[in-house]
Design a protein around this nucleic acid. Sequence first.
DNA 1: TCTCCTTTACTACGAATGTAGTGAATATTA
DNA 2: TAATATTCACTACATTCGTAGTAAAGGAGA
Lengths: 192, 192
Amino acid sequence: MKSQRAELVADTAIDLLADRGMRGLTHRAVDEAAGLPPGSTSNLARTRSALLELTLARLTQLESTAFAAAPAPPGADMVEALAEMTAQALWTQLTVGRRQTIARYELAFEANRRPELRTIYDRAGERFRDLAVAILSAAGSSDPVRHGRQFVAFGEGVMFDVLIGAGAEPALDDLRLGVREFLRGMLGEGAA
Amino acid sequence: MKSQRAELVADTAIDLLADRGMRGLTHRAVDEAAGLPPGSTSNLARTRSALLELTLARLTQLESTAFAAAPAPPGADMVEALAEMTAQALWTQLTVGRRQTIARYELAFEANRRPELRTIYDRAGERFRDLAVAILSAAGSSDPVRHGRQFVAFGEGVMFDVLIGAGAEPALDDLRLGVREFLRGMLGEGAA
DNA sequence: TCTCCTTTACTACGAATGTAGTGAATATTA
DNA sequence: TAATATTCACTACATTCGTAGTAAAGGAGA
């Protein structure tokens, strides 16, 4: 981020987005929630579009570091390891990163109507998707591109369901079971 | 719906929600988009909360009819039939029902902050989930409740991915393939 | 036909919003 | 230190928002 202040503003915007939604995110609301003198946010991000861009940029920055350390251990049962890794990642996003995930979803919707956001969102999504393709390819997928995409979609669906849908508590064990079944379905019963 | 006018207002609100998001849905915007004299929506749904409730109620009404005719054909390969059925349903939601789906997502988020919406949303979701559990149970699932839930989550994820995420065109063939693999993963390779 | 009740049209108002201008304060560089 | 560029705090304004009041229109039932 360009400055400490920009970080503070963006982080506050993320929380507001998660807690109060798109309508709750305003320049003034950020000032107030961050304890900044009124006008500060308006000054840093002149337009609403600029504020959204700043927030999304910060969000992708935060999430990219969260998924950085994840080298696939090429052990005996790769599916098992991959399932464990994925379940843990989902778990993290659902608990510690709950608000970040919700804020990201809010911005994803907004990106459908704002090209400047779409650009940022897609660039981050692409990197993530490519990673999934590479991993599934290494795991012996017969159609890595489609599978990679489906893998990401499955993850988003699980998170969406927990955070927005039924609202039930996420259970790590269930996540593990689910991901394992999902992977076996794609890679075949006895996949390496 | 209570009146033709209420239907018109709700349908217009759905479109606005899909096209302009939560911030684009206002009493005045509905009047204008529906071609009603200013104040009409405000009069029909006195508060913003009432407007959102009306819209969500209409939405669940519309979607319940869309999924009504779907008796599982107990043929030889049940997984195959179920996959075909699901793929078609997803396809419909992604094309003809695109805006309805997006509007539903918007309201789902809002329901996290508005208990009165949460009630409506959950009641509809429960019926849907129960249906999934029953179908998977009939298909021989070893854990119908968890699988039913995961099945719904998978569907939401696929839709979310297409509508909000990568934004690529949905391909019916890919949907069919994906659902089939997903089901085989849950039900076992040679599931009936 | 007359009466009662619901729906509709229109208007008003306080509060909140996005945006932008300006001068002071602070940091950076020469 | 002096000059310059950047960041900051504060203010102002037109617009839009949610909400509500009220009077006219319309329809149902006696």
